[in-house]
Every structure is written in C-alpha cells, then in structure tokens.
Design a protein around this nucleic acid. Sequence first.
DNA 1: TGAAAGCTTAACACTACTGTCAAGTAAGTA
DNA 2: TACTTACTTGACAGTAGTGTTAAGCTTTCA
Lengths: 215, 215
Amino acid sequence: MNSVKEYKSASYKTGKIRKDNEIVIREAAEQEFAEFGFKGASIMSIAKRANVPRPNIHYYFKNKQELYNAVLMDILALWNKAFTEFTAEDEPAEAIGNYIRLKLMYSRCYPTASKIFANEILQGAPHLNTYLNNDLRVLLAHKTAIIQGWIDAGKMDAIQPYYLIFFIWGATQHYADFGIQIKSALGKEELSEEDFEEITANLIQIITKGCGLVK
Amino acid sequence: MNSVKEYKSASYKTGKIRKDNEIVIREAAEQEFAEFGFKGASIMSIAKRANVPRPNIHYYFKNKQELYNAVLMDILALWNKAFTEFTAEDEPAEAIGNYIRLKLMYSRCYPTASKIFANEILQGAPHLNTYLNNDLRVLLAHKTAIIQGWIDAGKMDAIQPYYLIFFIWGATQHYADFGIQIKSALGKEELSEEDFEEITANLIQIITKGCGLVK
DNA sequence: TGAAAGCTTAACACTACTGTCAAGTAAGTA
DNA sequence: TACTTACTTGACAGTAGTGTTAAGCTTTCA
C-alpha cells in the first residue's frame, strides 16, 4: 500500500485529465448549488452546465452528496481564511475597517460561494452542524474577545461584539446573496469595482463612526 | 356570471372547509419553500407536513407553481407593508430607528417569509422580475429621495441613501435568514424577545450614530 | 329529505432524475 | 508496439415526484 510503486501508480491516476475535469464539474456544480441548494440541484443539470455526459460526473464523484461535500469543503476553507484577520494588537478602527473591506471583497469575488453557504443555512445547515458548533464558534469567540478587549480599554463604544460581527456579516454578504435585487434596484447590469469601493467606504464610515472609532 | 344567484353560489363554494384547508396547506408550503426554494420543494413533502393526502393539494391549487405564487403574493404584501413607513416630515433619527425596529420585528415574527424571499432571490428571482423592477424600485426611489432630502438639509452625514437602505436590509434580514447560524454561534436554542430588543438597540445605535444622527 | 355542490381518495400514466454497468476509446508506460 | 490504466459513453433499472381521473363520501340548503 505504501510502497514507492504504489505511490507512483497513485500519482498517475490523479493525472491532468482528472484534475481538469474535476475542476470543470466542480465549477458547474457550484453554479447549480448556489441557485438551487442541495435538494434543488440536479446532476443532470450540472452535467449540462459542465458540457459532459452525465455518467462522467459519477465517475469523478460517487454521488450528489459527495460532489456537494467537495464543493462545500472548498467554501469553508475560503470562509475560514476570511476570518483569521484581526488580532488584539491591531488598532480597532483599522482592524474593523479591514475586516469589512475583506468581507466585501469576498462578496464581490466569490458570490457563488456565498450563495451556496446561504442556501445551506436556509436549509437548516444539515451538512454544517459540525462546522457551526466547532470551528466557527471558536473563531467567533476569539474575535469577540478581541473586540471586548477594545471596549474594556475604552477604545470604542460598548457594542455587543457578537452583534457587531453579525451586522458586518449581514451587511456585506447581502451584496453577494441579494446581488440581483441590488442590481435591479440600482438599475445596473453589474456592480463595478468603483461601486464596491463606494460601498466599502460608506459601510466602513457608518460602522466605525457608529462604534465610536472615528468622529 | 354576475347575477346575485351566481355570486351567492360562489360564496358557498368558498366555504369554511376550503378556507381552513387552504390555510393549512399554505402554511406547510411556506415551511417547505423556505427550506428548499421553489425547485427543491416537493408537493409530496408539503402534503406530509400538512397531513393531507397529496391529491388534495391539487384540488386547492392547480399545481406547484400556483401554490408558490399564492404564498409569494402574501409575502410581497407583507414586505410592502414593512416599507411604507417613513416620510419626509419625520425626524431622520426617529424614522430610521423605527424602520430598523420594524425590519427586525419582521425578522423575528416572519422568518419563514424572509427565507422564502431569500430563496427566490438566490434562484435569480424568476418570479419576482416584475416586482423588483416596478413596485420595489418605486418604493425605494421614494425612500432614498427622502433620505437625500435629510442629507441636503444637513440633518445627517452624506451617506449614499441606497447603500444605507441595503445595509439595513442586510443587517436585519440576516437575523431571519441566517437564524440558525446565529443561534449556533450564541449557543442558544432560540432568540428571546429580550435578545431582539438588545439587537435592535445595538443596531439602531450603530447606524444612527454612524450616519451622524446622534452623538 | 334529497339534489347539488364541495371535498376526499385510490389508482393511473407520465416525466425527471439517480446510480450502475459493461463495452468501448484514449492516454501513458515499459 | 503491447499492455495497463484512465476515461467515456449508451443503455438499463429503479425511485421520486407530478398532474389527472373517476368514484365515493360529506355538507349544505331548498
């Protein structure tokens, strides 16, 4: 099992073709899952999006569940990365501003990932129980402790740290998940980089000022 | 067709049994659509939730689409009601505070409605094109004009009115749509009325102060 | 009380989708 | 080149779900 020969043979198996095809299928699956959630998505439709015969998908991923898991794990990795950003040593105004900027950048660059996550939560998070009750909870407890530290040090107003985080999440993710509504309301086909810069500036201004971090 | 007799006969038709059954089915459908969206929902599963044989649903609603439309129309009526609240004559601090309070109340009292709307938007709003491009756009233009008036009168900071509205939507709806994540993060089974009051107070404080409406 | 309207239900035909298999083709390596 | 492994594809069986029908039951009210 662990001989050099076996290892080599394994590396042949996971060759370029497999890698490429997996990516194409994953991307098609992301679109489908983002729109319809796990239950509403169909392998047939994913196959059409990916432009491959349906059985190919089963060749690369055992079933719908496994394909979904693969996609979801990628997203969680991305999500965790967006979260490990500010520390107790940072100045709160800058740290919170950067966090908002980062979250909005994610909404702009990875709206599909955000939508899949939203769908998963709407469906009652059946595949994310472990994540929500462990990883996320720990990360969140850490962040809120930092914010509480800033409050105790008199650096900002006494806001419930959890609610501050939820405010940032809600306001920033809205631009990915409700993108269509926003575009429609603004009468735009797409939001440009400049639009996002303006949104970022507005949101940072409201929140930092609202927390007593700037005048 | 319009004779008194016909009218009377029509009123017999829509009797108590029909009314009651329609409500039971509608409520079951709301739950199902909130979790799975239009495509992911199944009439079979709605029938089980409502505790009626499946064909009964077809007796009251022609098909899945019509049932969904009925549910969605109720929600839009509710949504519009949540929107017709502040006017140019109001003091901005109070008006915006009240709007945030109202939106959070909706998230608390009608989370299912909020989730159905979220699902619809995530699926690309195929049934809401008309609403988004007409009703909503008009309402929104009206509200943003009022906010712009307050800004021009020097009553508040120069925030893009559209973005202010979107912040409020995102931050408030988050408590309905992402309720599970929030409960999980806070380690609570349910959010109490007191929790919502605290959330409301925090959010109003951040936003009104952040807009330069209070010190 | 009985006729008409309203409601329920089992059964049917049909479609969409899933997962599997076996036979085939293409790619990679000794 | 010959052999092995990787990949593709059409065909199949099975399940879940939809919408319809026809027959039976219940309620209403003249």
